[in-house]
Nucleic acid binder design. Structure first.
Lengths: 108, 108
DNA sequence: GCACTATATCGGTGTTCGACGATTAAAGAG
DNA sequence: CTCTTTAATCGTCGAACACCGATATAGTGC
């Protein structure tokens, strides 16, 4: 995963409202939430929530499924797993005691 | 770790240049980098690099140590470990098959 | 076709970001 | 004390963000 992509995902997750939305979608995995559901649990206008959802969509973290008259959103688990791995790699790389470039390579 | 704090850290890390700076500081842990060192390895003005460093400082991810006429920066490892843990918790919470609120609590 | 619901998008506003050059501040060297 | 180095800060500018209300779009049911 490229730094550019990882940074983009981090920025997408770098807002408390969007973290809340992600957690809510995770909690309601069985019967996915639509935009109205999310809006009703947040003190924000519908248009604002829709924009936050778009940010998460653009970052590839969630996906939309048209379901009748409403759009349901679900987490993209494989993508999240990849991000998780990239984050783990980042932090372990940062925290490793002697992370000189060539050593970093052999451990990557 | 609160969502607000986690989101702040994510946003701080949500820029390719800042990821580069973090990796560079990790690689040069033995003899810490100063602002000039970082500037010389990036195609950016000194003031711009200084501002990126300030963002990382404000997020608590790095710390400054005055060393003679220059300021050296080092990673705050304990903090990074906490962030790593929070990220791991976030992603595992998101990816868990049935992450209802009370179950999420008992696993946190 | 018409009303209704759900939601994406548009336009506007105020704030923050990312970048720069220029200036200031502070420590060392002479 | 002055000169140099280092780096933080200031002022500016355009772009992006966060929020809102209002408008458009699209599917459902009649």
């Amino acid at each position: 995963m490229q730094d550019e992509d990882l940074a983009g995902v981090m920025r997408a997750l770098g807002h408390p409202v969007r973290l809340s939305i992600m957690r809510m979608l995770a909690a309601q995995r069985q019967n996915p939430c639509c935009c109205t559901d999310v809006t009703q649990s947040l003190p924000l206008a519908q248009s604002t929530v829709s924009q936050h959802i778009k940010v998460l969509l653009d970052a590839g973290l969630i996906e939309r499924q048209a379901r009748g008259t409403r759009n349901c959103y679900t987490l993209r688990i494989e993508r999240l797993a990849a991000v998780n791995q990239a984050c783990g790699g980042l932090f372990s790389g940062l925290c490793k005691p002697t992370a000189t470039p060539h050593l970093a390579n052999e451990l990557a």
